[in-house]
Design a protein around this nucleic acid. Structure first.
Lengths: 226, 226
DNA sequence: TTTATTCTTGAACATCGTTCAAATACTCCT
DNA sequence: AGGAGTATTTGAACGATGTTCAAGAATAAA
């Protein structure tokens, strides 16, 4: 019984994600989902309460998927980093290590958005349409988990001792990359727009890191003078 | 007649923006607008074709307003900049001039989004819900006008000779600030979130500029070596 | 004034989210 | 097995929404 429940629940979520891939939020209607799953509209309301809550559950799966990919990438790119350093491909400095790690994270994010363009766009569109307070707690939690991915990478960084500044930096960098990617993917995802978007992300991350080390040197210069 | 037309047209647009301020897109319905303006639903369709097209017209007014504020700010902050330099408040270097100009632009943007939170959110929500190709040409034009605001400021910058890199930088920086601001304004706009958001914008712009000059020095260092 | 043209109206239609009484399926006890 | 009790599923029905368009009202032309 509960087993069957979970099956139907899972199928409804899967179909919702399917329909998101096909046309963003356009096909996400109670009747459309019910027809494709093979149940009645009432079942959706019994299991999820409302279509909006169903979409929220689907969205949490999307964020979880991205999170998982991020975790994997962090581990993988660490191995790749050592390999490149051993091969003399990358200079072994804290700055170049940081750059490599941030590029890897940014690439994972961009690839995910490209590979799941409609799905990702549906999630953003839905969240924007929700009234202020109604954003579920776990949504913010999952968003913070993504921030933490960058936060951990920024730990090895000349950002001062306080944790606060690192959080600010992580959120700023993540939001910035997010802004660039979504701003450029308003419409079609062509090879040209892909390249153009990556140019912007690359420049931003490069300047961010370069600025980080330049500023830290300035601080070192100034203190001895006093 | 045409005079009366323009009056009704203008009133419909004004009421649409009013309703956006009150509750984002929630109250933007043909019947709600018609009732408040004092006409029938049919009139809206006669003058605008559809509710979506009406919203697009309203959105273009929002972007135009922001553009105008940006233009004014660029002129004003130029005077303010000279005043601060004369007062010895700011060091007269290209880098500090650039920083001041970019901070001024970022502040205008943040203030506008705060002062028109619901209106701005409605515009973003609507654009995200539109199918790909249907983004009107003038919308992209007005967006490009905003990029140009930054692009002109970046002209006085060590970014290499090609215009292409400057366009990339302008889009990257603008989109980054946009990302930070919208990411932080998911819900309420409190004094705390305001400060937190500005911290991120400030850090990003500061590192972007610092990185810009650090990288240009590196290039100068490298070339003589060869 | 009469005719022609243009604009406005709001009832009507299709579609959406949502509800809930009735039907169905299932569990458990005798 | 049978029946009573419980849980789940169903889909017709309701209100709200975007949109249409024949009929009416207003205006211009004659």
């Amino acid at each position: 019984m509960t087993l069957e429940h979970e099956t139907v629940r899972a199928r409804i979520i899967a179909v919702t994600l399917e329909l998101m891939d096909e046309a963003g939020l356009e096909l996400i209607k109670a009747r459309t989902i019910a027809r494709r799953v093979g149940v009645s509209v009432g079942t959706i309301y019994n299991l999820f309460g409302s279509v909006d809550e169903l979409i929220q559950v689907a969205n949490s799966h999307i964020l979880a998927d991205m999170n998982k990919l991020g975790q994997i990438s962090v581990a993988d790119s660490e191995n790749e980093l050592e390999r490149r350093i051993d091969a003399g491909d990358i200079v072994d400095t804290p700055k170049d290590r940081l750059l490599f790690r941030l590029f890897a994270l940014a690439k994972v994010y961009m690839d995910f958005v490209e590979d799941n363009a409609n799905r990702w766009g549906a999630m953003l569109a839905f969240n924007r349409n929700q009234p202020e307070g109604s954003v579920a707690g776990w949504y913010l939690d999952q968003q913070n988990a993504l921030f933490d991915l960058i936060g951990k990478v920024l730990d090895a960084t000349p950002l001062g001792d306080e944790k606060a500044i690192r959080i600010v930096a992580a959120r700023a960098l993540w939001s910035a990359v997010h802004g660039i990617v979504t701003m450029n993917y308003v419409g079609q995802v062509s090879e040209q727009s892909r390249r153009f978007t990556w140019e912007q992300v690359e420049l931003l991350v490069k300047l961010f890191v370069a600025g980080l080390y330049a500023e830290s040197e300035n601080e070192q210069d100034e203190k001895p003078q006093k």
